[in-house]
Amino acid sequence: MRLINCVTLQFEEFIGKQIPPYAILSHTWEAHEISFNDYCGVEELRQKLGSEKIFKTCELARNDGYAWVWIDTCCIDKSSSVFKWYRRSARCYVYLSDFRLPGRATDISRCRWFTRGWTLQELIAPRDVRFYDAQWQLFGTKEGLAYTLDDITGISSLVIRGSLPLNSIPVATRMSWAARRETTREEDIAYCLFGIFNVNLPLLYGEGKKAFLRLQEQIIKQTNDLTLFAWRAERNTLLRRGIMAESPQEFAGYRWYFGADTCGPEFSITNKGLKITCDLLRWPKNTWLMPLGHGEMGRVGILLREDELNPGIYYRARAHELLDIDAIGKHLEKSTQLVYIHKYMDIDEE
């Protein structure tokens, strides 16, 4: 791990148990940032645009009793373990360059920091987080702002305060946290979620939408949480869809209760698609209603229809809907079946 000495501003590498306590910076990238290749001597560094973040972070850390800091722009080494670096930090400084005091805490909702994909993990992972305005004035902590952050992000204050472990939160809920966030590179909307789901995969820039599919496949290897399939297409579409979502945006607008019945039977990815043995409710025309669990509006499910060109394999029908089973499924015939479901059908294949 590459850290910056707060006194000399020189880099030093640490490994494993040798890593000392350190502070870490969370921010949104501006037009001018200091990369590892741009880094130079202290006096020359002072003349470079974007160096203020480095000097201010080191100053804050020194004043708080820390000798080392980590800043992504110049310390990053293209590893996928960034979530762990934020989790292991002794203190995290969040710098909001587009917020100025005096102002109400709720005014931070307009800050760009809340719209970016990578800052999601930077909010959740560190235990001690302190927020600073554009003039580097402290105005709150994650603990003290927990309810405000809940309102802004849709992430429960219990999660923000670290009272609930991430693996106890339904998969769809965690996906929804990123539904309104953006990343510069298409793949990063998947990569920024690796830590949220405790996934460690190689970063393959250039794979496009397949990055999010790869993330979902890895999640399937770790959990039988059926809410992974509780997404809704953003528009009413007649296109056939597979069981996988295209992006976190498709998980927006639906809340799952913590501790709800979301875990189902064993399922896995095979070369025929998703394989699962589950209870299905009969629907007309070779269509079945597949229950997924309980959320804010009761039991919900999705529609599966048999693929005429591939008998025995199903696809997602009416993918823009999550159906209320308690309202429409009471009198439907139930059948336990082994089914295969296409992973995806309308993602571009290259």
Rank of each mutant, 00 (worst) to 15 (best):
I108V: 15
I108M: 15
I108A: 09
S109Y: 00
R110Y: 06
R110C: 05
C111D: 05
W113Q: 03
W113D: 03
F114D: 04
T115N: 08
T115Q: 08
T115W: 03
T115G: 02
G117F: 10
W118R: 05
W118M: 10
T119R: 06
T119I: 13
Q121H: 05
E122S: 08
E122V: 05
E122I: 00
L123F: 12
I124Y: 05
I124D: 13
I124R: 09
I124P: 07
A125W: 00
R127S: 02
R127E: 14
R127D: 08
D128I: 15
V129R: 03
V129A: 06
V129W: 09
R130M: 15
F131Q: 14
F131Y: 15
F131W: 12
D133Q: 01
D133F: 00
D133T: 02
Q135F: 04
F139P: 01
G140L: 13
G140K: 10
G140H: 12
E143P: 02
E143A: 07
G144M: 14
G144N: 15
L145Q: 14
A146W: 03
A146H: 11
A146T: 03
Y147E: 14
T148I: 15
L149S: 03
L149N: 07
L149C: 09
D150K: 12
D150S: 12
D150M: 10
D151E: 15
I152V: 08
T153V: 05
G154L: 08
I155D: 00
I155Q: 05
S157R: 13
L158W: 08
L158D: 15
V159T: 13
V159W: 04
V159G: 06
I160T: 04
I160H: 00
G162H: 02
S163F: 11
S163L: 13
L164D: 02
L164Y: 06
L166W: 04
L166V: 06
L166I: 00
N167S: 10
S168Q: 11
P170R: 01
V171T: 07
A172M: 03
M175Q: 13
S176L: 10
W177I: 03
W177V: 01
A179F: 10
A179I: 12
R181Q: 09
R181D: 01
E182M: 15
T183C: 15
T183V: 12
T184P: 10
T184I: 09
T184M: 10
R185F: 08
R185G: 05
D188Y: 09
I189W: 07
I189N: 07
A190R: 12
A190I: 09
Y191H: 14
Y191W: 11
Y191L: 14
Y191M: 13
L193N: 08
L193A: 13
G195Y: 11
I196F: 12
F197T: 04
F197M: 04
V199W: 04
V199M: 07
V199Y: 01
N200W: 01
L201P: 02
L203I: 09
L203H: 04
L204D: 01
L204P: 00
L204G: 03
Y205D: 04
G206W: 01
G206Q: 00
E207V: 02
G208A: 03
K209W: 01
K209S: 02
K209F: 08
K210W: 11
K210F: 06
K210I: 00
F212E: 00
F212R: 05
F212N: 00
F212A: 04
L213T: 09
L213F: 12
R214L: 06
